[in-house]
Amino acid sequence: MSELYVTVETTIPDDRIDLFARLYEEAFGPLRTKAIARQVLHPEEFHAEMVDPRVHKHVARLGSGEPIGVTTLTRHLETVPWISPDYFAARYPEHAARAAIYYAGFTLVAPSAQQGAAFHAMIESVVQIMVAQRATVGWDICSYNNTRYSLADSIRAVLDEQANVEVAVEDSQIYYAARFTGDGATEGG
């Protein structure tokens, strides 16, 4: 693999969004049937994130400039519809006062580059910001990715290697399903 570098971009130009959307679909598309909670942004949601300057895109690129990975990061928590900004503000009031609470929306690496350094390089790029601002950052990982790819362990390893950091599970949500297999009749009922 050629040399790898990371750029931090506030917006992706409209003429490049389709390229990023293809990367996103390759990486996240399979989760449509692997996770009960929706893990894949709709095309219009993806486009909105790519052009929203409040959401910074840490883009892993090959030496040729070709993008092979993206991590989204924002301190404008209202841009992440599935989290509660109030939760973070209540738990980290000093960070909230300094606007130093971030959320990493997604991290993806093209399937062809998943064994390379792109994931590590993008997390390092985020860590540099977190360390400089003594910030707090949240993220979520679906159970499928955590079990199959040990993403939490991978992220924690990169964080521990890069900074003095405390990582904790903040919350969890467990989804259930009931499959009814009979006619519902019970004795004595």
Rank of each mutant, 00 (worst) to 15 (best):
E66T: 10
E25I: 05
A185L: 12
V127M: 10
G116Q: 01
R38A: 15
L19G: 07
E3G: 10
A152K: 09
E3I: 03
N146Y: 01
D171M: 11
A163W: 00
G116K: 01
P30Q: 02
Y5M: 00
A35W: 06
I141C: 11
S143T: 13
L41E: 06
H42Y: 11
P67W: 03
I141Y: 01
Y102G: 07
I12Q: 03
I12T: 06
A163I: 02
D15N: 14
R22V: 14
H58T: 08
V6A: 03
H42A: 09
D183L: 04
F180C: 02
A21W: 11
E94G: 14
T147I: 14
L4D: 00
F106M: 10
P81N: 11
S84W: 11
R16D: 02
P85V: 11
G29F: 01
R98H: 09
G184P: 08
D14G: 08
A118Y: 03
L108C: 12
A35D: 09
F180H: 13
Y24N: 02
A90I: 01
R179D: 15
L19C: 09
V40F: 02
D153M: 07
H56D: 11
Q162K: 15
E66V: 10
S64F: 10
A27F: 08
A132T: 07
D86F: 13
S154P: 07
E49N: 14
I68F: 01
D52A: 14
V169G: 10
S154Y: 03
E66I: 06
Q133D: 14
E3A: 06
Q114G: 05
E49W: 05
A89K: 10
T74G: 12
E9D: 15
A113K: 05
V70E: 00
D160F: 12
A121K: 00
A113G: 06
L73A: 01
I155S: 01
Y92F: 15
E45S: 13
L62N: 01
A113S: 11
